[in-house]
């Protein structure tokens, strides 16, 4: 009897894993069939206004890239503070708040940036979108930096200090270097996450049908346009949305996997 229960239980567990995998497969196969069906290289050559995705893909990368330029240094500096300089209470509070911010609803961050950037500057803009994504990214980078630095043995810091290096030198030359791989992986995963975000961009950058490098006006976004296109009645728009989704997912998964690959390789 005990063995029977055991068997049933274990089978249920295996079944759950299969269900999980089935969903992954289902989504990926759908994307592959629908996306590849509407995919052609012309998509990379034309802008949305001419039925292509070029401006959207470039726009999405610029938004996420700019967000990284803002978010990575700030997040790393804050992570360094928490792990290396912070003593006691304050550092712990910041760590906790950053943890909470990591799970804050992304649409709320969009609304926040709308109120503090979009409204005062008079309209949606690439900058506003990048800021919203940066706010999403900062706590993730803080978390990674904090965790990875905490893995660096204390003796390594002491050895640096014992040689007569000042603390910031030890942090930059030794501690960060020792934690480099982990931090880079975390940053890549964070980048993969924000490049697929839609909600914080809806009313910050919005999207645009045209190619644009002007960050002070509505900025082309792949994800926002997918949402718009997918809700349009014409079959052609929806096909384009599928192609765009396919490209987006492939991008996100490649970035995500390469992040994991770096860590694995190093180990």
């Amino acid at each position: 009897m005990r063995l029977l229960i055991n068997k049933i239980f274990l089978s249920l567990s295996v079944l759950s894993a299969l269900i999980g995998l089935a969903f992954l497969a289902w989504i990926l196969i759908t994307l592959f069939i629908k996306g590849l069906g509407s995919f052609h290289f012309g998509l990379f050559l034309n802008d949305l206004i001419d039925g292509g995705l070029r401006n959207l893909i470039i726009g999405q990368f610029i938004l996420a890239g700019l967000a990284s330029i803002i978010g990575i240094p700030l997040g790393m500096a804050a992570g360094i503070y928490i792990q290396e300089y912070g003593q006691g209470r304050y550092a712990n509070i910041i760590r906790d708040l950053s943890d909470i911010m990591m799970s804050a609803p992304s649409i709320v961050i969009g609304a926040f940036v709308y109120a503090v950037v979009v409204v005062p500057t008079g309209g949606t803009s690439g900058f506003a979108g990048a800021i919203a994504l940066a706010i999403m990214m900062i706590p993730v980078v803080i978390n990674t930096t904090d965790n990875m630095l905490s893995l660096v043995p204390r003796e390594l810091r002491e050895a640096g200090i014992a040689l007569g290096a000042s603390k910031y030198k030890v942090i930059i030359d030794i501690v960060i270097k020792a934690a480099k791989v982990g931090i880079m992986t975390g940053i890549l995963l964070a980048f993969a996450r924000i490049i697929g975000e839609t909600a914080p961009l809806l009313f910050t950058s919005e999207t645009s049908n045209y190619f644009s490098l002007n960050l002070t006006e509505s900025f082309p976004s792949l994800t926002v346009s997918i949402y718009d296109l997918a809700n349009e009645p014409e079959e052609a728009s929806r096909d384009l949305a599928w192609a765009a989704s396919f490209i987006l997912t492939v991008l996100v998964l490649i970035i995500n996997l390469s992040g994991r690959f770096i860590t694995r390789n190093k180990k």
Partner: peptide
């Protein structure tokens, strides 16, 4: 484990469309 984490990495808008 990696497959499950990849499922977590898929952008939410894709889940919506699918």
């Amino acid at each position: 484990g990696i497959a499950i984490e990849l499922l977590a990495a898929i952008p939410s808008i894709i889940f919506g469309m699918w």
